[in-house]
Design a binder for these strands. Sequence first.
DNA 1: CTTGGAAAGTCAATAACGCTGACTTATGCT
DNA 2: AGCATAAGTCAGCGTTATTGACTTTCCAAG
Lengths: 169, 169
Amino acid sequence: MSDGRPTGGYGGESLLFLTDEQLRQGIEAMFFAYRGFTADPDRILAEIAYGRAHHRAIHFINRAPGTTVNNLLSILGVTKQSLNRVLRTLVGDGLVESRVGPVDKRERHLYLTDKGKALESTLSDAQRARMRAAYRDAGPEAVAGFRQVLEAMMDPEMRRAYTRLRDGS
Amino acid sequence: MSDGRPTGGYGGESLLFLTDEQLRQGIEAMFFAYRGFTADPDRILAEIAYGRAHHRAIHFINRAPGTTVNNLLSILGVTKQSLNRVLRTLVGDGLVESRVGPVDKRERHLYLTDKGKALESTLSDAQRARMRAAYRDAGPEAVAGFRQVLEAMMDPEMRRAYTRLRDGS
DNA sequence: CTTGGAAAGTCAATAACGCTGACTTATGCT
DNA sequence: AGCATAAGTCAGCGTTATTGACTTTCCAAG
């Protein structure tokens, strides 16, 4: 399990990409890349005294306008109390609007205000710029592989959330 | 910049993989995948009252035995105070050994004890299992692309740390 | 051989973000 | 009427990170 040789009992295919060493390099690549991934928005957020949690909420509200609190909860994978604290500041600062559900009045539907959209745009422009550079460097085939591996790494439940967003509700 | 069409002024190649929509999907894939990436070790760490910070320290001490505190600091990208708190518990719990530098006595060189190695093994087995499954599902070419994009996403300084580790100090 | 600076360790205070548990309010549905 | 659901809230806690200030130890250059 830790001898650097391929694992599994396959036949003659090259399974060298499944060695523990290769896997460890992948793990480290994820670690370092994720740092880069969040670095640009983090810088912007720090200036306005927000954190990553605010960014995530803004991102997904923008992505699925009108989403309910419960829906957002399951996407973000945090507790109601955690999300609520973030949401309260966002609503208080006039970035997010919370409207009573038209059909089920218990629900609150979340929307970005113009101000919220502006911040979302600033944040995602910064993040996209880095992604775009990385994508361009690596090329379309690498990007396809990148997406494929990431998708395979997700928990099944998160993969459902991901594909649902991707393919449009 | 946000119209869904390709950006950049290239010629006739298909740049559809550089649309804002594609980039956003990549961003979301990173978000969901990173959750999966940390989920398994997080579960183990929660049982023993450690956190991700302990895992990271253990990982890199195992990876580069004898590393100094300053070196670890720059790899992990945290402050001395943050790392020190983690390191103190790890040394106190007998997982990490801190030896005075043989040549420069100001330095402390960090090593995992047998107990530390055992925990490292448990944690990385869990994380590798998921990586291995994802790699196997996606195949060697996808993995190559995955690595390529991740590397391109890193900050230059982190990329140096990454390749230095990968290619062996 | 003194002095400046580097490496490490520490103390105190602060903040973001997450958690659990308990509870209320409003509403929908059977 | 009564149970369940969606949301919101209060209180308290823990981890991880931050900054600032300070000490000890030690190397190395003047």
